[in-house]
Design a protein around this nucleic acid. Sequence first.
DNA 1: TCAGGGAAGATTGTATGGAATACGGGCGAT
DNA 2: ATCGCCCGTATTCCATACAATCTTCCCTGA
Lengths: 234, 234
Amino acid sequence: MSTRQETPSGNLSTDVAYQSIRAKILSGELAGGAWLRENELANQLGVSRTPVREALGRLVADGLARHEPNRGVRVEEWTPRDLNEIYDLRVLLESHGTAMAALNPATDVVLLDKLASEMTLITEQRHPDFGRLTELNNNFHSTLLESSGNERLTTVVASIVQVPLVRQTFARYNQAELERSMAHHHEIVRAVEAGDAQWAEAIMRAHLRAGWSAMQRFLIASRPKGRTDGQADA
Amino acid sequence: MSTRQETPSGNLSTDVAYQSIRAKILSGELAGGAWLRENELANQLGVSRTPVREALGRLVADGLARHEPNRGVRVEEWTPRDLNEIYDLRVLLESHGTAMAALNPATDVVLLDKLASEMTLITEQRHPDFGRLTELNNNFHSTLLESSGNERLTTVVASIVQVPLVRQTFARYNQAELERSMAHHHEIVRAVEAGDAQWAEAIMRAHLRAGWSAMQRFLIASRPKGRTDGQADA
DNA sequence: TCAGGGAAGATTGTATGGAATACGGGCGAT
DNA sequence: ATCGCCCGTATTCCATACAATCTTCCCTGA
């Protein structure tokens, strides 16, 4: 429902552990650099250490955590440089996917249009529901990628972008940026509808670059702030 | 030495298991679709099932194997469509990386030139050492990606390409293709040396597309061949 | 006062046993 | 004869026990 690609291994305890820990990281409850203790997590979740270890391994593979031999696993930290790299790749891959989607007659333009319109509606309200907006936005971008005809493209982008950073992007936009972002969405739909791959690719690139610009401004603002030890509370 | 990015978790048994099983898959000793039994592998490798399970989990994360709940893990199988998707992404990412490398003054052109020359030398011999050639080629492409200034680019490409398919590509080239491939390498070096990003990107794209073309021919030739059960022998 | 060593505690890494689950063969019913 | 059910076997999945390793802190000695 939310994003997809949740790696539902089909087990029980392992998935519970994986989802729980992942959610804690993405929500920010577990800050960057925080240690992920096997025992602690196992007790919290009411399972043994084995599935917790397995879940941690997957998080490391996802790039959300880092493994330090004989020391443990800690939540990954993201430098501005990391974010820059990630956005570069995202722009490259997503704009390419959008171009492919424009050439694909099976692309569901109606759905894209509906998503874009609903997002616009939300932004016009007095107190926009950014959570819902983010969800629709993810849906919009996913739909485009899935329409590219390259299944791997979706998973690769998902593995790169790893939303701990992108979360709540919209809340940082000022009114002008928000309106521009919505305009981008509609223009993307028009370009795809027209089957113009180059137009679609270009406007998607602009869309993402604009987002990155806003993100950068936020990063510069909230920079050092002293070192946190990770855990939000005990 | 070989490729890099081996995920050296720093443990002992787990790494042994991971490397061993990975090698068996990449060498073809374990064919696509073969079951990876925990007990069997543990006995073979002289470790317990726990590190084997951990290794299997990593292989699944790498995309080299697939997990079927309560059934086990089996070696991933690649359809022609998969290979097509993979090559599309590879072309996109590598050509972009090459363009960036051309713009990066720190790119080690001397090393690239040396690698290209040594490869050419090998191909001019009576019985080319394709293993060595592949190694040098990997080195060439990795060097370019690392010079792009985007560290993630290297790991992303590595995670996508997963050499079980690309292995022995050169052995499939005919003489003309082999010579063209070598010429491409030298031209790439020249383009990077000249700092011409568009030239570099274009020739790299041609280089990879040509390789994909040869690969396709091979795939069509050796298509169905009856279902193998995996294990080469018992 | 400060540097060095060493032991205790904590945490990860590995091994193994028991519970749960899925598959395959045989038997019986229709 | 074929379909469906049941049970035995094999294998994964989870729990727990043990071993190895790292960290910390105190104690000793100069």
